[in-house]
Design a protein around this nucleic acid. Sequence first.
DNA 1: CTCGTAGTACGACGAAATTCGTACTACGAT
DNA 2: ATCGTAGTACGAATTTCGTCGTACTACGAG
Lengths: 102, 102
Amino acid sequence: MPDELTHPDRAAIRIDQVLHALADPVRLTIVRELAKLAEGTPCGTIDLPVSKSTRTHHIRTLREAGVVRVRPSGTARITTLRRDDLDALYPGLLDGILNAPH
Amino acid sequence: MPDELTHPDRAAIRIDQVLHALADPVRLTIVRELAKLAEGTPCGTIDLPVSKSTRTHHIRTLREAGVVRVRPSGTARITTLRRDDLDALYPGLLDGILNAPH
DNA sequence: CTCGTAGTACGACGAAATTCGTACTACGAT
DNA sequence: ATCGTAGTACGAATTTCGTCGTACTACGAG
């Protein structure tokens, strides 16, 4: 019984939470991979050095901050970057991070 | 006997630490104010809802992450944003944050 | 229907971060 | 030389965060 996959709408996204969400190595990896992956790839394909529950926790953090959008698809979840919203709110921020030296 | 005011040079700046440094409300306020203030304004002029020691702690965090440069000037400290370095490393990032809706 | 897989919920533990007060140093002014 | 001010250092208390294991739900395949 997963809690409803709630997402903040664009106006409710807070820069504090976005930065906090991005300030973790694992979550930064997720965001970077999502940016490279084709749209519609299940998030489970990204391999991370953490357990399954930790992965869930990080995806949740990113979702609640407004960084990613999560959509159910069977038993899996399709996770996508909210590029449009982030670019509209903070132009340059996302690209600045994605183009950063790893 | 303050520890030497060490600063990472540009190549040593890590995106993880920069994001972590910016992911705090107080530090974000400091960065925003520094961006507005004239160069050479002592950092003590920014008023924050925290104690003196907490302020020191946050400035230190920003300095060690490579976000600000701190230079002694008498008993005061001149704190400046490292715009040049940040813009070179992560073009768009700083402006994206500074232009964000408060 | 049964089984396997993807993901979540919950509780817990340890690490790290924020905050503060107090004591201290350093510099400038009187 | 003495005093006041700006900032730092240190230790402590509280909180938050990241991590995990286990138990659970939901959906699809056979």
